[in-house]
């Protein structure tokens, strides 16, 4: 039995409405305006992947949190597990954007990277 999914492509702001038909291993995508959309539709049918953007605790910095992102997309179903794993992570200022703040999160082969600079706290 072919299975049909109606999705909104999230790769770019255009938000094309995709139709993904999955018949066993065969997946066909329509509605995309560009190849990135097709690739997204295929992946979505198999295992939806998402980037994770969040913050981690920071010590000694000008602010108590540091913005971070995943170096690659993670399975959507693991995002909350990844969040829980990040609860215990604490970075020490100074940090530069791009620095790795946590390696190989949940053993998925994905690192968490700083997306902002964090200077040391100024003392008044």
């Amino acid at each position: 039995m072919p299975e049909t999914l109606n999705l909104t492509c999230i790769v770019c702001p255009r938000g094309c409405r995709l139709t993904v038909v999955k018949d066993g291993d065969a997946v066909s995508v329509s509605g995309h305006a560009c190849p990135r959309g097709e690739a997204y539709g295929r992946q979505e049918a198999v295992c939806p992947l998402r980037s994770l953007t969040t913050t981690v605790r920071a010590d000694g910095g000008a602010r108590p949190r540091l913005a971070v992102r995943s170096s690659a997309d993670l399975p959507l179903s693991r995002l909350l597990d990844a969040m829980a794993a990040l609860d215990g992570v604490v970075v020490r200022a100074p940090v530069r954007a791009g620095d790795v703040v946590a390696r190989d999160i949940l053993g998925l082969g994905v690192d968490m990277l700083a997306t902002d600079n964090l200077e040391e706290a100024r003392h008044e």
């Binding site: 999705l7 909104t8 492509c9 999230i10 770019c12 702001p13 938000g15 409405r17 939806p48 998402r50 959507l76």
Partner: peptide, 12 residues
Amino acid sequence: GLARNVRQCLED
């Protein structure tokens, strides 16, 4: 809001 945000922020 944008359709992609309805998708990735709510439906997900």
